[in-house]
Design a protein around this nucleic acid. Structure first.
Lengths: 342, 342
DNA sequence: CGGTAGAAAGTAATCGTTAACTTTGGCAAG
DNA sequence: CTTGCCAAAGTTAACGATTACTTTCTACCG
């Protein structure tokens, strides 16, 4: 139904190629003809058939994004920004939410490969690197977001997770916490990095984690981790040496933990200080406003988009590029035990 | 680089068509050949080139979704669900966030039209119906989400906004509020519907809105409306007859309003009860847990996806179908002035 | 045993564009 | 006047699949 090059060509008594050349600003077209063609294109509201074009050029002007949970503000923010950035250059974005399910994610990646996207961005829930070898085999460039995989050297954009752990833990120490616990996430790079940072910061303050003070959120099935945080914090509060500061893997976990603390009749931050990570936009409005390490999701989104566009244009950096965004801490009531310094 | 039908055909000494027939389970292929072909397909990890296929079939197996703000949990939830539902049937989803900008939205719609998506889903920020006439002209089916437009008869899936207003306002009245105010949203169908419901509920409780008790959030530029809510509530609290109940257009606005109320030294819900709309997942964790009307975003997502799939398969309902989802109220502390009934 | 039906394959045309050549005609240089 | 070159077009053949039709061969029936 929509207009084709052929229609315009017939209307004007020209050949299809001539029209195509006008479309792409090819030099060897006379000024008069060019104007006639452009006029007719406007009249018919001509839109090139991108499927036909990509069939021959090999480029689809399409980018794929796979995230574990689109409902999570961190990923939503990234998705929103990437969408906005790549649109400016004429790309459209396939987005899909894998629900933290490695199998679903693999399916989705396969689907995107079949669609011949020009680049793929993945915040992965995979445990193995096998899938990525497949992508490499198809020579489609890709970028990992947020989570890295051991043994896989590839483009990466995400926060510096070790720095996250250091920032949060040092802050708690500086606020006078003596027994700082950590509620850690699952066995993925982000959680491991933050745990490392936590350990490192404790060491530089001449502390060590007390036994039982590193607990893991269970795989309780709620993606956001609120329940996991509640349960983990309950465990912590029951331990012999009750912690007076908790660094939580992320904000939802911190919410759960705070609820557990309040439910136990304790005060935040006087009895237990809490720091989360993610700096979700509602952190200001909580019962106790939550201190949180901001992962710079906006910067991540922008950098990822820029890198993706570069790769799409085959300005591929020879060696895979890894961009570590430095986090920063936003202090709110949940961890403020001293009058603001300075 | 990826394998083509031709490659398989050459390898096995068959014609391309035979391979294509196997691919599509065409009956006239012998069992032995079929197996040979399938085997080779697996070996090469063959993925059909969807661009080539859509060029000839006219179907792209692609769906477009445009929302005003992907960061808003309501839209994120819908996007996530639609993505999951349509994936099951082999569709991929283009998602883009228009930033509440009608012009950007129009561009994006144009882009999706050029891509020949099979269906389009739009939560629109348009003021006029012109753009949609264009879509109709291209004969691409579309569905409006959440927001309707006057004078446009088309497929729609969204919450029953009038019912939202009635539900929230009646609840406040039943909780003993005598001066119920409303912080309304911008001039779009959702805000208008909720305002209608508010008026209707007041009337059925033999009340009328006091002068100055319907205020609008300014276009303060923050999409979520927290600042607008704060300012609007401040105005309300300064009015001659201070309201003792406020129905807020949505949850972010309610958050802003609650902060204004607390900042003014008043208590929630004793002095002023508050009800929002959206039932955002963090409502439980707020300083005062927020009562909120749930819009059933999950149901909206599922219904929208189902309708989209039906349209994509050309099982087009003769007349455009409008699905109004009934909302329900989730009562929390911010509006609970009486001991729980029953 | 001839005729025909049907199973299993193949041929040719097509979808809308683009890439790589080729043609046409006009004009300037030799 | 011929040569050669350039501008402005056109021709032909892809791209990777599908559709509609045709061919080939086997088998079965009367």
């Amino acid at each position: 139904m929509p207009a084709r090059l052929k229609d315009i060509a017939n209307d004007l008594g020209l050949s299809v190629v001539t029209i195509s050349k006008v479309l792409r600003n090819h030099p060897d077209i006379g000024e008069a003809t060019r104007k006639r063609v452009l006029k007719r294109m406007k009249e018919l509201d001509y839109q090139p058939n991108l499927a036909a074009r990509s069939l021959i050029t090999g480029q689809t002007w399409t980018i794929g994004l796979v995230v574990p949970d689109l409902l999570h503000p961190f990923f939503a923010q990234i998705a929103k920004l990437i969408s906005a950035e790549v649109r400016k250059k004429g790309y459209s974005l396939f987005i899909s939410s894998s629900d933290e399910d490695p199998e679903l994610e693999r399916q989705e990646i396969k689907q995107l490969l079949a669609r011949r996207v020009d680049v793929m961005l993945i915040a992965s829930a995979q445990w193995t690197i096998e899938t990525f070898r497949q992508i490499e085999q198809q020579k489609i460039p890709y970028i990992l977001l947020d989570r890295q995989l051991a043994g896989l050297e590839c483009n990466f954009v995400g926060v510096d997770d070790r720095a996250v752990g250091v920032l949060a833990t040092s802050h708690l120490a500086e606020q006078g916490c003596k027994r700082i616990a950590h509620i850690r996430g699952p066995e993925v790079s982000t959680a491991i990095g933050r745990l490392d940072g936590y350990r490192q910061a404790l060491a530089s303050h001449r502390m060590t984690p007390l036994p039982g003070h590193i607990v893991s959120i269970g795989k309780s099935g709620d993606h956001r981790g609120e329940r996991g945080g509640y349960e983990a914090a309950t465990k912590l509060l029951a331990s012999k040496k009750r912690p007076d500061g908790i660094f939580c893997f992320n904000d939802p976990v911190a919410l759960g933990a705070m609820r557990a603390i309040l439910d136990a009749g304790l005060r935040i931050p006087e009895d237990v200080a809490v720091v989360g990570c993610g700096n979700l936009s509602y952190s200001d409005f909580l019962r106790v406003p939550l201190s949180s390490v901001d992962q710079g999701s906006k910067i991540i989104g922008k950098r990822a988009a820029a890198l993706a566009l570069a790769l799409a244009h085959n300005k591929a950096p020879l060696r895979p590029k890894s961009e570590l965004i430095p986090p920063h801490l936003v202090v709110r009531a949940s961890s403020l035990r001293l009058p603001a310094a300075k």
